[in-house]
Design a protein around this nucleic acid. Structure first.
Length: 419
RNA sequence: GGAGAGAUGGCUGAGCGGUUGAAAGCACCGGUCUUGAAAACCGGCAAAGGGGCAACUCUUUCCUGGGUUCGAAUCCCAGUCUCUCCGCCA
């Protein structure tokens, strides 16, 4: 979220910065609402002062007048609230401003490749898709999921389930013991305000699974990513600068409606309503965002290095970035059956955008209260890593070699083949 | 599910109708002292929003939302959360 005080300094500049996102902001409307809002605040405060003075004077003759002021005040407050609500509705839905490092562009075609790592394996047979492999092994069952639940879910069984668990543990161990992240096992349900804090609400409500709760109680949602719950650990607090940076990691299921992606990746488990993801979150002093982003991205690619999976690192263009991000790297892993790279991690700096929404601050070295910087990144998406391992490590007979680093997590199993 | 207790500043914790934005302590910052540090002593220290070039000033905020009152942290109502006891349970 943007600080109105900053926007107010130069509406046109703000408009042009947001334009990088291909959004044409009606700044005139914002200005009008803001001006009116401030007028109403002044009116309100004037009346409040009058009332306060009368009550302080303890002059009984003025008490009646105070009642009249209360009536006026009530009307002004209602008007001010209504006006502020209109203003908020606009402000809440404006995305973060792209950092100057970010290339301008419309969609993924304008993303900039930073580096390619790893050799793409040449198969002397046509590599199968992960779902062909999984179904042949009888370890991925999409039909069963359709029967019990619905589309875009999967049953993972047997050795593949073990592989999934191994991936999760392997990644967690790396981030905890080598990369300085604190392990967290968080709630998988978040309150409405928590979802607002990281930017999922109000704009992306359609993508969220909402839990039915009792009438009158706060709305609750299944987390679409652990970012939501891990970042909001510091919601509404003034963090002691001595404790920064805070680095959290969690392996959790993520739930997404995937509204608007009908027909996309319908086969296999690339795009599911539920998937595991290891998520990293950093809370930092706001001038350290970019260096932390590099560090975090390295933590993610390190996993792929160790699993010996080929990947490339992309710098997202302004049009392809998420709502809260100022700068994002996507890590894309090689998927042999598709003969292309697919996103397996996304690491973003959100500058102070989420902190403003969450009201998370710290005292900087000048003892000024200022907003923290927040970052989040997948390290990595488990479901997609499972796909990448299956496809890149497949043999002609449909068996799958287990990457060496994972074997200690799988009772030293070396290969997965049909039972 | 039943019965109680509570929610106050970065933290602990007083206040229970009128200079209370809020005692005290801790933490933090500045100073004196010291070769340096510690201790001791002195001083400072909430946030959000509005006005002003600025010095500064005004408003709001003691869980949230209503109400009573000229005036509410303090009284009333509703809700949320936390704790204790009983029951149930992975």
């Amino acid at each position: 979220m943007h600080n109105l005080k900053e926007i107010r300094k130069n509406f046109d500049l703000f408009k042009s910065l947001i334009q990088k996102r291909n959004i044409n902001l009606d700044v005139e409307k914002i200005k009008k609402l803001d001006d009116l809002n401030r007028q109403l605040i002044q009116k309100k405060e004037g009346l409040e002062k009058e009332k306060k003075d009368i009550s302080k004077s303890k002059n009984k003759e003025l008490f009646e007048k105070s009642k009249d002021i209360s009536d006026q005040l009530e009307k002004v407050i209602i008007e001010q609230k209504k006006n502020k609500k209109q203003l908020d509705e606009i402000i809440f839905n404006i995305p973060n401003i792209p950092h100057t490092d970010v290339p301008e562009g419309n969609d993924e075609n304008d993303n900039k490749e930073i580096i390619r790592v790893g050799d793409i394996k040449k198969f002397d047979f046509t590599p199968k898709t992960h779902f062909e492999l999984g179904e042949k092994l009888k370890m991925l069952d999409f039909d069963l999921a359709t029967k019990t639940t619905g589309s875009r879910f999967v049953f993972i069984k047997d050795k593949l389930a073990l592989l999934e668990r191994a991936l999760s543990n392997f990644m967690l161990d790396k981030h905890i013991t080598h990369n300085g992240y604190q392990e967290i096992s968080p709630p998988l349900i978040a309150s409405e305000n928590t979802m607002f804090g990281t930017g999922q609400l109000p704009k992306f409500e359609d993508d969220q699974f909402e839990i039915i709760t009792e009438e009158g109680s706060e709305r609750k949602f299944l987390i679409p990513t652990a970012e939501v719950i891990l970042t909001n650990v510091v919601k509404n607090t003034i963090v002691d600068v001595k404790n920064l940076p805070l680095r959290f990691v969690a392996s959790t299921p993520c739930f997404r409606k995937e509204a608007g992606s009908y027909g996309k990746d319908t086969k296999g488990m690339i795009r599911q309503h539920q998937f595991y993801k290891v998520e990293m979150v950093s809370i930092v002093e706001n001038d350290k965002c970019l260096s932390e982003l590099e560090r975090m991205t390295d933590c993610a690619t390190q996993i792929l290095d160790e699993l010996d999976l080929p990947y490339r690192k992309m710098l997202l263009c302004s049009g392809d970035m998420g709502f809260s991000a100022e700068k994002t790297y996507d890590i894309e892993v090689w998927i042999p059956s598709e003969n292309k790279y697919r996103e397996i991690s996304s690491c973003s700096s959100c500058s102070t955008f989420q902190a403003v929404r969450m009201k998370t601050r710290y005292k900087n070295h000048n003892n000024e209260t200022t907003f923290v910087g927040t970052l989040n990144g997948s390290g990595l998406a488990i479901g997609r890593t499972l796909i990448a391992v299956m496809e890149n490590y497949q043999n002609k007979d449909g068996s799958i070699v287990i990457p060496e680093k994972l074997r200690p997590y799988m009772n030293n199993l070396e290969i997965i083949s049909a039972n």
